[in-house]
C-alpha cells in the first residue's frame, strides 16, 4: 500500500447482494486509502458492474455497509467528489449532436446545481479538463465523430472537471486500440501521482493494468484477494486458478477477451437514487 496512514476514501464492510435468489456478491470487505490506485479485476459475470452500482448508491446492499469519505452511501450527497466513467459511456448514440466542450461541461452540472448557469470560471475549468486529457484541438468537434480512444478521453475529462478526489473507471479500455490503451494508463498514472486522485479501475485485463496500479482486488462473487500489488504478483497463478477455475494466461494482453458483461446490467434505472 502506498500510504498506510492516509485516510480511507472507501470502506466496504460485509456487503452482500443478490438479484432475486441469485447471490451476486457475498460478504465483500474492502478498504481503499486516499492516493491509492486499485485495480479491481474479475471475469465476466463476476458482479463487477453490480459492485460499482452499490458503490455509487444506484443499488442498495442486502447486507453490510459501504462508506464513502467516512459517511454511509445512503446519506452521501457530495457526489461531485466522485468521478465515474461507465463502461457504457462511449456506447452513447453517436448521432447525438454535442461537442466535446458540451459533453465535458455535463461533469459540472451536478456541482453547479439547479437554477444556476455556467459561468466564466466554469468554462475555464472545462477547457483545463479537456487540455488535461490532451483533447484541446477537438474542443468544438462533434463527439460522435471521434475515435473510441478519443471519446474515452473526453469522458475522463468529464469525470475530472468537477475535480473529484476519487475516480472510478468501469472497463474504460473496451473498444480502445492497444496503443491508446498504454497512453491511457500513462495518463491515469499521472493523475494518481501528480494530483493525488484515488483511482479504482475495474477491468478484466490484468496484464496491461498490473504495472500501473498500487493495489489489486479480485472479484468473483466473493472478493478473493485484496492488498498490495507485490503480494498479488507472488500469488497470481494460485489466485487466477481459484477465480477462473482453471489455469488461464491472463497476463498477456488479449483483446479477444473483450466481451462486455451485460448479464447483470440493469438498463432500467429504477434504482435507489433515481
Amino acid at each position: 500500500m502506498k500510504n498506510s496512514a492516509a485516510p480511507y476514501v472507501l470502506e466496504v464492510k460485509n456487503v452482500s447482494f443478490s438479484y432475486g435468489k441469485q447471490m451476486v456478491l457475498e460478504d465483500i470487505n474492502m478498504q481503499v486509502r486516499e492516493g491509492s490506485f486499485l485495480g479491481l479485476v474479475g471475469p465476466n459475470g463476476s458482479g463487477k458492474s453490480t459492485f460499482m452500482k452499490l458503490l455509487l448508491g444506484l443499488l442498495k446492499a442486502d447486507k453490510g455497509n459501504i462508506e464513502l469519505f467516512g459517511s454511509p452511501v445512503q446519506s452521501f450527497r457530495d457526489w461531485s467528489r466522485i468521478g465515474f466513467v461507465s463502461q457504457k459511456a462511449n456506447s452513447f448514440n453517436s448521432g447525438f449532436p454535442a461537442t466535446v466542450f458540451e459533453v465535458v461541461a455535463m461533469g459540472l452540472y451536478g456541482k453547479i446545481g439547479l437554477f444556476r448557469f455556467l459561468k466564466k470560471e466554469h468554462k475555464k475549468k472545462i477547457k483545463e479538463a479537456i487540455a488535461q486529457v490532451g483533447m484541446e484541438q477537438y474542443m468544438h468537434k462533434n463527439i460522435g465523430r471521434l475515435s473510441g480512444g478519443q471519446q474515452q478521453r473526453v469522458f475522463i475529462a468529464r469525470a475530472l472537471v468537477s475535480e473529484p478526489e476519487l475516480l472510478i473507471l468501469d472497463e474504460p479500455t473496451v473498444g480502445v486500440d492497444a496503443d491508446s490503451v498504454r497512453n491511457f494508463y500513462d495518463m491515469l498514472k499521472e493523475l494518481n501521482d501528480k494530483k493525488n486522485i484515488t483511482l479504482i479501475l475495474v477491468t478484466h485485463d490484468i496484464g496491461a493494468m498490473s504495472e500501473y496500479v498500487t493495489d489489486v482486488a479480485c472479484l468473483n462473487k466473493c472478493l478473493h484477494f485484496h492488498g498490495d500489488k507485490n503480494d498479488f504478483e507472488v500469488n497470481r497463478e494460485e489466485m487466477m486458478t481459484a477465480m477462473y477455475g482453471h489455469k488461464v494466461n491472463v497476463i498477456e494482453h488479449n483483446h479477444s477477451h473483450d466481451h462486455h458483461d451485460h448479464s447483470h446490467d440493469h438498463d432500467d434505472l429504477d434504482g435507489v437514487r433515481s
Binding site: 457526489w79 465515474f84 459511456a89 455535463m106 452540472y109
Partner: peptide, 14 residues
C-alpha cells in the same frame, strides 16, 4: 441536456 445524453451518469451526478 445531461439526462438526454447520458441518463445513468446524470442520475449519478445527483
Amino acid at each position: 441536456f445531461f439526462l438526454s445524453f447520458d441518463e445513468e451518469q446524470a442520475v449519478i451526478s445527483g
